[in-house]
Amino acid sequence: MNAFVKMDTGFQVRILIFLALVVGLAVTVPGFLSIANASSIIENVGLIGLIGAGIMLTMIVGQLDLAVASVAAVAAIIALSLAGTSLALGIVVALLTAGLYGASVGYVINRTGVNSLVLTVCMLIGVRGLALVMTPERPAILPFDMFWISDGLVAQWGPLTLLGVICLVVIGLVGVALRYTKLGLSMYAVGGNLDRARGSGISTARVYMVAFAGSAMLGASAGILAALRSGSASGLGFESFLLAGITVAVVGGIPLEGGRGTVINVLLGALIIRLISSAVALGGIPGSFESIAIGGILLAMLLLDYWLGKRRQARATPLRAGLQHATTTNSNGG
Rank of each mutant, 00 (worst) to 15 (best):
F4I: 10
K6Q: 12
M7I: 04
V13C: 12
I15R: 06
L16Q: 07
I17C: 07
V23M: 08
G24W: 10
P30V: 14
G31Q: 07
L33K: 12
I35P: 02
A36T: 14
S39Y: 05
S40N: 15
V45E: 11
L47A: 12
A53S: 12
G54Y: 02
I55R: 11
S70E: 05
V71Y: 04
A72M: 13
A72K: 10
A73W: 05
A76R: 12
A76H: 11
I77C: 08
I77L: 07
A83C: 09
L89V: 15
L89F: 10
L89G: 06
V93R: 12
L96G: 04
L96Y: 04
Y101S: 10
Y107I: 07
N110W: 00
T120Q: 09
T120Y: 01
M123Y: 03
M123T: 15
L124N: 13
V127P: 10
G129W: 00
M134C: 03
P139C: 02
A140F: 08
I141W: 01
G152A: 11
P159Y: 01
L160D: 11
T161D: 07
V165Q: 12
L168Y: 02
G172L: 02
G172P: 06
G172C: 03
V176R: 04
K182D: 07
Y188K: 01
G192W: 00
S200T: 08
S200A: 08
S200K: 02
G201S: 04
A205S: 08
R206H: 06
V207W: 01
V210M: 02
V210P: 00
S215C: 11
A222F: 05
L228P: 06
S232N: 14
A233P: 02
A249I: 03
R260H: 09
G261A: 00
N265D: 06
I273C: 13
L275N: 13
S278D: 08
V280G: 07
A281F: 04
I285K: 03
E290K: 14
S291L: 11
I292Y: 15
I297R: 05
L299M: 13
L304C: 08
R312Q: 12
G322P: 01
T328N: 14
N330R: 12
G334Q: 11
